[in-house]
Amino acid sequence: MTAFTIREVPDDIASRLKIRAAEAGQSLQTYLLALVTREATRPTLAEIAQRAEQYAVSEVDNDDVLALIDEGRAAR
């Protein structure tokens, strides 16, 4: 496992993080690991756009739209 060091963290930011960790009932290390993990696993806007492009249909006509509407109504 890799260890990170963050230098020159302003005192007010470090204090806020320590308070938030304490309020969450966690050590600062556990709190920061969860924070970094959440950020690293959340897809970026570029990744979301790329996924959307994979599923996008380039040509849709009226018949396609009407068929999907009918399919949705039949599923009710």
Rank of each mutant, 00 (worst) to 15 (best):
R20A: 07
R20V: 00
F4P: 01
S58H: 11
A75K: 11
Y31L: 02
R73A: 12
Y55D: 11
T41V: 05
L66I: 12
D63W: 01
I13Y: 11
R38I: 01
L28K: 02
N62P: 00
I6C: 08
E59P: 00
R76E: 15
D70W: 01
E53S: 06
E23V: 01
L17A: 06
A75P: 00
R38H: 09
A14K: 11
P10D: 10
E23T: 02
A3E: 14
G25F: 04
L17S: 07
P43N: 10
Q50N: 10
A67R: 15
I13R: 05
P10Y: 05
L17H: 08
V57H: 12
Q54G: 14
L33S: 09
S58D: 12
A52F: 08
R51Q: 10
R38C: 02
Y55W: 02
R42I: 01
I19C: 03
L17K: 03
T37G: 11
T5S: 15
R7W: 08
Q29T: 12
R73G: 01
Y31E: 05
Y31K: 02
T5E: 14
D70L: 13
R51T: 02
R42K: 11
D63M: 05
P10K: 13
R42S: 12
A52S: 06
L33C: 03
V65M: 11
S15N: 11
R7C: 04
A56F: 01
L33A: 14
A14W: 04
E23C: 00
E71Q: 15
G25M: 08
A74C: 02
D70G: 00
Q29V: 09
R51C: 03
E53P: 00
Q54T: 07
R42C: 05
E53H: 06
D61P: 01
I6A: 15
A56H: 03
E39G: 00
S58A: 14
L35W: 06
T37K: 12
A34L: 13
K18M: 09
A14N: 08
R7F: 09
A74F: 04
S58G: 15
Q29A: 15
A49T: 09
R51W: 03
P43G: 14
K18F: 01
T2R: 15
E23L: 06
G72A: 15
L45D: 12
I13V: 12
A52Y: 07
I6D: 06
A24D: 13
D11H: 07
R20N: 07
A21L: 09
L33G: 02
M1Q: 10
T44S: 15
